[in-house]
Design a protein around this nucleic acid. Structure first.
Lengths: 222, 222
DNA sequence: GGGAAACATTGATCCATGTCAAATATAAAT
DNA sequence: ATTTATATTTGACATGGATCAATGTTTCCC
């Protein structure tokens, strides 16, 4: 499991015990669907590389992005006790995940306590990531602070995998980011332009680099 | 544990095994502090009754509310693997919690697997609550949809405890709600007035009752 | 019960973001 | 390469929420 789900460090100790029985590596090309909303929940996923977006169909028109998942993070663990997934998971750019059968995981855990223990640590870590994620956006309304918070948040979450703590390759369209943040693409575009003009960030295609992290942090805090 | 932490159903099966060794009931009066940000993390809490707010000191001026916890929900589990709490937890109105020692919980779990299993279910349920919580606010900017989403979210979370799925006793000040939602108190007040005028909700002191849940749901969805 | 403090509502004005429209840049197709 | 489609940026104006100020209401303390 180590070699495959590298970023999922908390599970490392279970390697020898669980190995290939517990997980299976899945490669997902850009815009490939991992699972569909409302289908039976059978597996949990750990992102190995790339990015996944979680979305729900907004009645009528277009989809609603309700979350992003980066390497080292789980997908589907929040619905472990439900019968069906309540959102659709889609790969953003070429990505890969570890697929873990809930049933097998549970059965295996009963025999090998250390697996359960690692799983608890993993869940707690997820909780923490989500809480920080929530904090990043709650109580913020200005476009500047939303984008600053977004950039800092995704780069922090991506850092553990890529090592780079000031840049990210983000294959999301402006539309998708705007949708996620609750801004209009025009507004988002203006803020991006402003941040570049003020030398806070540098954008090159899909690559975003943070130049003035301190200033961005201040913006994000209000 | 059952009688004390009633709402925490997932832990019910551990009663006989863990009982009073694992948890301790704590009563917290209004505005009493459960733990302070940056102090060593030793315990996890399960809310039994009342409401708790989680907040961080915003450098300079006033506090920032970064989360609310209702009966049946956990506090501090998201930092299980950290050394210190990263927010302060304060009781809103007279409340009570179960205090669970992380150390004892862990030690006990090693001996009794079923405790670990229940804990995993509990953590997964928390993840789900947080995800719904996140969904409620991400991508929303209009004051109307924010308040509608907020009311529906807290009443859903409170329902499992009180049984009432259309009203809530919310001892939060307008200022606190506005702070949490990222609105100005004047704006929030106007929306409250509008919702009342349009007969969507009914407010009586700290008691809020939802009249037109369908319309509120539509508003919340955009 | 009276007075002060804290909290909540309402009105008037200003500014940030939404909206609509057009231009430019990028990607895809032939 | 050229065309076509799609995505992104920029401009002009309208609108919702912020801000400032004033008034009304509740809570608390003596």
């Amino acid at each position: 499991m180590n070699s495959v789900c590298q970023p999922v460090t908390a599970l490392n100790q279970s390697i020898d015990l669980a190995d290939s029985y517990l997980h299976r590596r899945i490669v997902a090309k850009n815009s490939e669907v991992l699972f569909q909303q409302s289908t039976p929940l059978t597996d949990m996923y750990a992102v190995s590389s790339g990015i996944f977006k979680l979305c729900q169909q907004n009645d009528g028109d277009d989809e609603n992005i309700i979350g992003l998942r980066f390497p080292g993070e789980l997908i589907g663990e929040d619905a472990l006790y439900l019968k069906t997934y309540n959102y659709t998971a889609v790969a953003i750019g070429d990505s890969s995940v570890c697929k873990v059968s809930i049933e097998q995981m549970s059965a295996c855990g009963k025999l090998v306590p250390v697996i359960q223990q690692n799983f608890i640590e993993l869940l707690s870590r997820q909780s923490h990531v989500r809480q920080r994620n929530f904090q990043a956006y709650i109580g913020k309304k200005s476009a500047d602070s939303l984008l600053a918070a977004f950039l800092l948040n995704i780069i922090e979450r991506n850092a553990s995998y890529t090592g780079s703590d000031d840049s990210i390759h983000l294959p999301l369209s402006r539309n998708e980011v705007a949708n996620f943040l609750g801004l209009r693409r025009e507004t988002l575009s203006r803020v991006f332009s402003k941040f570049q003009k003020e030398q806070l960030i540098q954008v090159d295609g899909k690559k975003i680099q943070l130049i003035e992290i301190d200033k961005l942090t201040k913006l994000a805090d209000f």
